[in-house]
Design a protein around this nucleic acid. Structure first.
Lengths: 338, 338
DNA sequence: TTGAAAGCGCTACCAT
DNA sequence: ATGGTAGCGCTTTCAA
């Protein structure tokens, strides 16, 4: 693998000139430039990005940490990030963290060791404090899909309370009074926030509502099945289910059918995220749209612009640009109760 | 950001000793080692991976190129690669190529410039010749989900002909004679291979079958809808649809319903890949299981072991370990014709 | 066990 | 417009 010196020698010029050509720098004569270019091509020269990085004291690409790639929601994040990277002609380096704390930490560390300056991290398992430390240390680090009060100017997150309120409002509008919620636990407590939002919203109505909370581990199709199974086993009464995400909702629908109940006639179901799955379902799923792709794009832009600064002064910010709002998408899985 | 020199100075030792500690090398006294470690911690030392890489002449992590992250099938690849990386305690760097030739090429180049030695690339848009050149130049490069004859010992692929045969066999077993195929075009021609497989299989039966091929761009839910729309508009007769993937199959089912036909009573549908989607569907989708995750794991191991060698001699290989077989998964979307 | 010093491939400053 | 060269942060002989 030829180095800059080899090229220089072969072209009869100095390494400095070759470097200039590589970086499209000025101060190189036209013929010299052409000659060097030709030789580089002939010798299949490939710059060593590591050597470049060590000199430039930084790494221009964008570093990304994603908690899990197999979740389509997260895949959407990756896509959003890619979009702005492509448009700015930057590369992204993605390090995924298999959904456990240690590997998420590892992923961040490795990116830092490679001196990536702009970092978009979607962490599901790392605690607030650790992330705050990271954020303070690394000016170009932005947290995606997470809200930490102390560094909220470095976060891009979804308004989960509003999401909960939206769900509650819709279901109450339709005349439901007995509501079951399928959530998931996790460090982020999205579920708790959504339930807060629901309760706050419900409190505005004159009637009393029963919210039956069912914690449940997996945010998956199977998780939805199990949750409904449990609800039924416990003899809980409900006419509507508010699910943590679309996959759970679909699993719930399936298990309800298995028990001879149809959706929405016997039970109404609302999902969350509005993934493609929600549209494919029968019945089409009423759900809450999650603008995660926009959020990812915003986070990337933020990380990029923050990484340019020196990190001395935290930038001003308007919360509205950091907190994104979910939107209700009404389809066919909720019925009106007479 | 402290360097190795800063640590050395603070600890009153030479940079060499610090380096030894960093790399868990021998020849360092116990107390010296402890002291250096303490200082590193105190000063929050973080090794510069770029500097390390430039010395070691290589990059230990695994480089990955994926054509598209938003397709769940590809997300599964990423997951498989991750699994073996984690188990070997290696990092992965993923560069995704937005499904166009230029950015796929770019992704590979960048990884090479960073001197990654083990490369798993899933390219959908780059031509054979270019990939062959890459493979010859980079000993640790492995092609995932692609078969190029000239370098098949460097490829991990699915037996598409067998996939087609499986589909055909099943549908014929069930008494169908008029078959519509929804494919997608692309550089890889999976579709063509599958159709070859179908025809070869069909030829073994005494009856004549009609295969109606419908090319179609998008391998998505919407693509499936459009394809069925077109089939119907063209007045094609069919009792079964063989789809390129599960998403298309689901879209097809939806559009059939929209035209008042039910699956499987009026039309049978077979998908491909066996993603979670196939199980969530009503009716549950009969499909072809694609062992992509195993394939990804295998590809990663191969890349890793190849990158260890000097590249002088192409390793022996047994084709069976490179060509993976799809498997029919019978569910509820195919009916028996009387 | 430790340290001095020569690179790794490249950039950028200072001369020419 | 060009070349010489001193680093960038680290690893790795080779001596001590």
């Amino acid at each position: 693998m030829p180095t800059i010196k080899d090229i220089a020698k072969a072209a009869g010029v100095s390494p400095a000139s070759v470097s200039r050509v590589i970086n499209d720098g000025p101060k190189v004569g036209a013929k010299t430039r052409e000659k060097i270019k030709r030789i580089m091509r002939e010798m299949q020269y490939q710059p060593n990005a590591n050597a470049q990085a060590i000199n430039m004291q930084n790494n221009a690409s964008i570093g990304i940490v994603l908690a899990d790639l197999t979740d389509p929601l997260f895949a959407k994040m990756a896509h959003g990030i890619e979009k702005v990277a492509a448009q700015k002609d930057l590369q992204i380096f993605l390090n995924s963290g298999a959904f456990d704390r240690a590997s998420e930490l590892d992923a961040i560390e490795v990116l830092l060791e490679h001196r990536y300056k702009a970092l978009v991290v979607h962490s599901a398992m790392i605690d607030d404090k650790t992330l705050i430390d990271f954020a303070r240390k690394v000016p170009g680090l932005v947290l995606l899909n997470r809200h930490i009060k102390e560094i909220e100017n470095r976060c891009i997150w979804l308004d989960d309370k509003l999401g909960g309120a939206l769900m509650a409002d819709h279901i109450v509008d339709k005349g439901h009074k007995k509501i079951a919620v399928i959530g998931v636990d996790g460090i982020q407590n999205n579920t708790r926030l959504r339930i807060e939002g629901m309760k706050a919203q419900l409190a505005k109505y004159p009637v009393t509502y029963e919210i039956e909370m069912l914690e449940q581990g997996a945010a998956t199709y199977e998780g939805g099945e199990v949750a409904v199974q449990n609800l039924l086993a416990r003899g809980v009464e409900f006419s509507a289910i508010l699910a943590y995400n679309d996959a759970i909702a679909v699993g719930a629908v399936s298990m309800l059918k298995a028990h001879g109940m149809t959706v929405p006639d016997d039970v109404s179901v609302v999902g969350f995220n509005n993934l493609i799955l929600a549209q494919c379902m029968k019945p089409k799923l009423t759900t809450i749209h999650n603008p995660i792709e926009e959020m990812a794009m915003k986070a990337t832009e933020l990380a990029l612009s923050l990484s340019k600064g020196n990190g001395d002064s935290e930038p001003d910010y308007v919360m509205d640009e950091h907190k994104y709002s979910p939107v209700l998408v009404e389809r066919q899985s909720v019925t009106r109760l007479s």
